[in-house]
């Protein structure tokens, strides 16, 4: 399918500081693209440029056929953003915020009421719909912010950290509703610094760090791309015979074998699922009894660390 969003050398500088640095990235129509990166990576700034809120310093982004630097009014019509910081004034109630938002987006009044009720009920905030924002918890305000876009159902829906401050039940609800929106045909950009969120929701993940795009691919392939990213741990009843490690190293996808403890080896390899039968076969041939065998795949954190030398948590702290 053709890309519906095309960033071309997209750059934003604030004074001398480059917040977004020559981003080249395409988003396919109908996919959920995770924009993953630690705080300060430039996710929000990128989103604000897509939404025609900020002007690119250099480069541009095409929203559908429209160049945001030339036809911002038209580009904007295709996009809806649920912001990282809920944009509610203290005196607003969830109902009035959503009703006004839907009205500006051109929804007729019957449809408006129907959709707002449905979204508020799904997100469990129907009962507080007439309370003013200052009496609502952070998590509730965040839900209202997300609800705006779930009511609007724009062609391109952007969620900036949609579940920050939201409890586990709420998180799963929101994820489900984002998927539903995608299934109806919307294209979704999901900015997050939560690995799990990006992993479970996205078809593709773009990893950003210090304004730059490090890599963009399917989560599965990102993980596979780390040499020796998969780990198989085998524990034995007794000690580990020397020749086992030698033999294991000969399996094609194995990158490294180390004796972690006296009676355990750690095998670093790619595509563990393909190598497992061969490992089992080898052990059988050598007459070795394995006590346990555990496979773990790399996390996105490992992917991030592979590209930056830092875990996301370390990067957040910088």
């Amino acid at each position: 399918m053709a890309p519906i969003i095309r960033m071309v050398g997209l750059t934003k500088r604030f004074g001398g500081f480059t917040a977004v640095d020559r981003l080249d990235l395409e988003v396919e129509e109908g996919e959920i693209l995770g924009l993953l990166g630690p705080n300060g990576a430039g996710k929000t700034t990128t989103i604000l440029m897509l939404a025609t809120v900020l002007k690119p310093t250099e480069g541009t982004v095409y929203i559908g056929p429209y160049d945001v630097t030339k036809e911002a009014d038209k580009a904007r019509r295709l996009v809806g953003v649920a912001f990282q910081e809920p944009k509610l004034l203290w005196v607003d109630s969830p109902w009035s915020v959503l009703n006004w938002h839907a009205k500006v987006c051109g929804l007729p009044s019957g449809e408006r009421r129907r959709r707002i009720r449905w979204v508020l009920e799904e997100l469990g905030i129907w009962d507080v719909r007439f309370k003013s924002a200052h009496s609502l918890s952070g998590g509730t305000r965040k839900r209202v912010e997300v609800a705006k876009i779930l009511v609007q159902r724009p062609k391109i829906a952007i969620f900036d950290e949609p579940t920050a401050q939201v409890d586990v039940v709420g998180k799963h609800k929101i994820w489900g509703m984002i998927r539903e929106l995608r299934d109806e045909g919307s294209t979704i950009i999901l900015a997050t610094n939560e690995l799990h969120e990006a992993d479970v929701l996205s078809q593709r993940i773009a990893i950003m760090h210090r304004g730059k795009l490090l890599v963009c691919d399917e989560p599965r392939r990102l993980k596979d791309s780390i040499p020796g990213g998969d780990v198989v741990e085998v524990s034995f009843e007794g000690g580990v015979p020397e020749m086992v490690t030698e033999e294991l190293r000969r399996i094609p996808t194995v990158v490294e074998v180390s004796a972690a403890r006296q009676n355990q080896v750690k095998i670093y390899l790619n595509r563990a699922e393909e190598a497992l039968p061969r490992i089992a076969e080898l052990l059988l041939r050598l007459g070795l009894q394995a006590k346990s065998m555990r496979v773990s795949e790399p996390s996105l954190d490992d992917v991030f660390a592979h590209y930056t030398g830092l875990t996301i948590e370390e990067a957040q702290r910088r």
Binding site: A51, R76, V81, K87, L89, V104, P154
Partner: peptide, 18 residues
Amino acid sequence: MELRREVTHYMLSLPIER
């Protein structure tokens, strides 16, 4: 106040001609 609280970002993102 909207400018300081960045509510302006929201206003600018709405599907309205500037």
